[in-house]
Computed example of a mutant assay.
Amino acid sequence: MRRAVMASVVMVAALLAGAAPAQAAAPTGGHGGWVPAPSAAFEQPAGARCDFAIRSEPIRDEVRQLVLETNADGTPKRVVYAGDLIVKFTNLATGVSAEVDASGTALVDYHTDGSMTWYVVGPVIFGFRDDGSTLPRGMWLIDGVYTLAFSPTFHKTLTMVHGTTTNLCTLVD
């Protein structure tokens, strides 16, 4: 598994290095170039991810996506996401907030059964519910080199090659 993750990381780096000039190129072969992939602000009630209600909102969002491969029906099969993302994470009960850098790069494989696999380098924020993953409930900033596999029911399995995990709930508690 570790070799597969490292191979994916090398592939993402190579794709990003090779794909940069494609930003100015016209779409070809059914694939477009890099396009914005904005993150939406959201709120979660107390107990869903943290013991208190939270809000997550992008402060700077320059994330873009490049569809590398599509399914026969035209839906994305393999997509690269990259770009700056700074998120303000707020405890709605106290108003305490923290700005977090979530500017990781991810290669995401979307599977026809509804599952997906993320191959990530750098920091990305993921929410975890009770009994829904290999991490406890929370909003987690995962940074490093890792994969995150989502089952069709969105159970998440984190495989960390190297890195850290920080529960953002503790930053604003």
Score class of each variant (00 low, 15 high):
Gly114Asn: 04
Asp73Cys: 12
Val100Cys: 08
Ala41Gly: 12
Gly114Ile: 00
Met160Pro: 02
Ala17Gln: 12
Ala41Leu: 06
Tyr81Met: 03
Thr134Gln: 11
Ala53His: 07
Ile59Glu: 07
Asp173Gly: 14
Thr70Met: 13
Ser103Thr: 08
Tyr119Arg: 09
Gly144Ile: 03
His162Tyr: 07
Ser39Glu: 13
Asp109Val: 12
Gly163Ala: 03
Ala4Leu: 12
Ala20His: 13
Val161Asn: 08
Gly95Gln: 02
Gly95Trp: 07
Gly138Ile: 04
Lys156His: 00
Leu171Glu: 07
Ala25His: 12
Ala26Asp: 11
Ala106Thr: 13
Gly95Met: 03
Ala48Phe: 09
Leu171Ala: 14
Arg60Ile: 06
Ala22Lys: 14
Leu168Trp: 07
Val108Tyr: 03
Ile125Asn: 12
Gly83His: 10
Phe150Cys: 00
Ala98Asn: 10
Leu148Tyr: 10
Leu68Asn: 10
Thr105Ser: 13
Pro123Phe: 11
Pro45Gln: 11
Pro45Tyr: 08
Thr170Asp: 15
Ala82Met: 08
Gly122Asn: 09
Leu66Gly: 03
Thr28Lys: 09
Asp130Arg: 14
Thr94Leu: 06
Val63Pro: 00
Asn91Asp: 13
Val35Lys: 13
Asp84Arg: 04
Gly33Pro: 01
Val67Glu: 10
Tyr119Phe: 14
Val12Thr: 13
Tyr110Phe: 15
His111Arg: 15
Phe126Ile: 05
Leu92Asp: 05
Arg3Pro: 01
Val121Gln: 06
Ala26Lys: 12
Val124Phe: 05
Gln23Arg: 14
Gly18Gln: 11
Ser151Leu: 01
Asp73Lys: 04
Tyr119Thr: 05
Asp109Gly: 10
Ser133Glu: 04
Thr159Val: 15
Met139Lys: 06
Thr105Pro: 00
Val80Gly: 03
Thr153Ser: 07
His31Tyr: 07
Ser151Ile: 02
Val63Lys: 06
Trp118Tyr: 14
Trp118Cys: 02
Gly33Glu: 01
Leu15Asp: 04
Ala82Ser: 13
Val108Thr: 11
Thr105Leu: 12
Asp143Gln: 11
